[in-house]
C-alpha cells in the first residue's frame, strides 16, 4: 500500500510539473504584460517599463526559457512570483483559496445531500408522480447553465429587494466590511444565500446527484441481496435504506469526494456573477490582465487540487467498498 501510494505520488508530481510548465510557457509566449504599462498617460519610459517587468520576471525581451528557469526556481522554493503589478502571487493565492472555500463548501455539501435523498426517493418510487416530478425538475435544472441560473437568481433578487424597498437578500460581494462581530457573521451568511442556492441545485449539484443516485439505486434495487434482506424479514423500507442505499451510495460518494477535493479551485461563474474574489474569478481576471505568473500559479494549484481530489475519491471508494480494499 505504501509503495503504491508513493508511486502514485511520483506520477502525480510529474503530471503537475508538466501541466504547470505547459501553462507557463503558453501564457509567457502569448500574453503581453507590457500592454498594461504602455498605454498609460503620461507615457512611461521604455527603460522604466523594462526595469519593472524585469523585477517581476515578466519582460518579454528576456528569452522565454530564461524566464521559465527563473519562475521554476522560484516555484521549487515555494514562491510563485509576482503579479503583473508587483504583488505577491503567494499572498493572493493564500487569500483567494479561502474565499473560494467559504463560497463553495456549503453549496457542495447541500447539493450532495439533497441530490442523494431525491435520487434515492425517485428510484424507489420509479414511474410514480414523485419520480416524474423530480426527473423533470432535474432535467430542466441541468439544462440551465450556471451563468444563466446565477443571473436569473440575481435578477429575481434585485426585483424582490426593489419591491420590498430594502435589501432582504444580498446579491453581490462576500460581506459588508462596515459591520463587525456577530452582525458581520449574519451578513456573511446573507451573502452566501444566492451563491449557495445556485451552486447546490444546478447541474453540478442536486440535479446531477439525483440523476446518478437514481440510476445507481435502480441498478441495486433489482439485485438479489435486496431480496435476501427482505427474505430475512426486513420491511421493504428498511431493506432499501440499510442494504440498497448503503451500496448504491458508493458511486455518488466518489463524485462528491472529488468535488470536495476541488472546492479550493473555485467556481468561475458564481464568483464572477456574485462578485466574490476567489480563485475562479482570479483565473478570468489574470487572463484578461495578461498576468502570466498568476495564470501559471492557478494552473499548478488546480492540477494539484484535481490530483488530490481523485486520490481522495479513490481512498473513499476503498473505505466504503470492501471489495476494492487491499487485504
Amino acid at each position: 500500500m505504501g509503495k503504491y501510494l508513493l508511486r502514485r505520488l511520483a506520477i502525480n508530481v510529474i503530471l503537475v510539473v508538466i501541466a504547470s510548465s505547459l501553462a507557463y510557457m503558453l501564457a509567457a509566449t502569448t500574453m503581453n504584460p507590457r500592454a498594461a504599462y504602455q498605454g498609460r498617460q503620461p507615457p512611461v519610459p521604455e527603460a522604466v517599463i523594462d526595469k519593472t517587468l524585469d523585477a517581476y520576471n515578466l519582460n518579454d525581451k528576456t528569452p522565454v526559457l530564461q524566464r521559465y528557469a527563473t519562475w521554476a526556481t522560484g516555484v521549487v522554493t515555494g514562491d510563485f512570483g509576482k503579479t503583473w503589478n508587483g504583488a505577491s502571487v503567494n499572498d493572493e493565492l493564500g487569500r483567494r483559496m479561502f474565499v473560494s472555500l467559504r463560497l463553495l463548501i456549503l453549496g457542495t455539501l447541500l447539493g450532495f445531500a439533497i441530490g442523494v435523498a431525491l435520487g434515492a426517493y425517485s428510484a424507489v418510487k420509479q414511474y410514480k408522480f414523485g419520480d416524474r416530478l423530480i426527473g423533470v425538475g432535474s432535467f430542466v435544472l441541468m439544462a440551465i447553465p450556471v451563468f444563466v441560473l446565477a443571473t436569473l437568481l440575481a435578477i429575481a433578487t434585485y426585483n424582490l429587494n426593489r419591491g420590498l424597498g430594502f435589501t432582504l437578500i444580498e446579491y453581490t460581494g462576500e460581506y459588508n466590511p462596515k459591520l463587525s462581530g456577530f452582525d458581520q457573521f449574519l451578513n456573511r451568511l446573507n451573502h452566501l444565500i444566492l451563491p449557495t442556492i445556485s451552486l447546490s441545485i444546478g447541474g453540478s449539484g442536486a440535479a446531477f446527484y439525483s440523476r446518478i443516485q437514481r440510476n445507481m439505486m435502480l441498478d441495486v434495487l433489482g439485485q438479489d441481496f435486496v431480496r435476501t434482506a427482505m427474505a430475512k424479514g426486513l420491511r421493504r423500507r428498511t431493506a432499501l435504506m440499510k442494504h440498497a442505499l448503503r451500496t448504491a451510495l458508493i458511486p455518488s460518494a466518489t463524485y462528491f469526494a472529488f468535488s470536495v477535493g476541488t472546492v479550493f479551485t473555485g467556481a468561475i461563474f458564481t464568483e464572477k456573477i456574485y462578485n466574490w474574489h476567489g480563485m475562479g474569478a482570479w483565473l478570468v481576471d489574470s487572463i484578461n490582465a495578461n498576468d502570466v505568473n498568476s495564470v501559471a500559479a492557478v494552473t499548478a494549484f488546480t492540477a494539484v487540487c484535481i490530483l488530490f481530489a481523485s486520490l481522495l475519491s479513490d481512498l473513499l471508494v476503498a473505505a466504503l467498498d470492501p471489495r476494492v480494499r487491499v487485504s
Binding site: A19, T302, A303
Partner: peptide, 16 residues
C-alpha cells in the same frame, strides 16, 4: 488522458 484532464481546459482555450 490523465494529463489532459489535469490541464485546466478552460484556461488553455481562454488563452488560445
Amino acid at each position: 488522458v490523465e494529463l489532459l484532464l489535469v490541464l485546466p481546459s478552460f484556461l488553455l482555450i481562454a488563452i488560445i
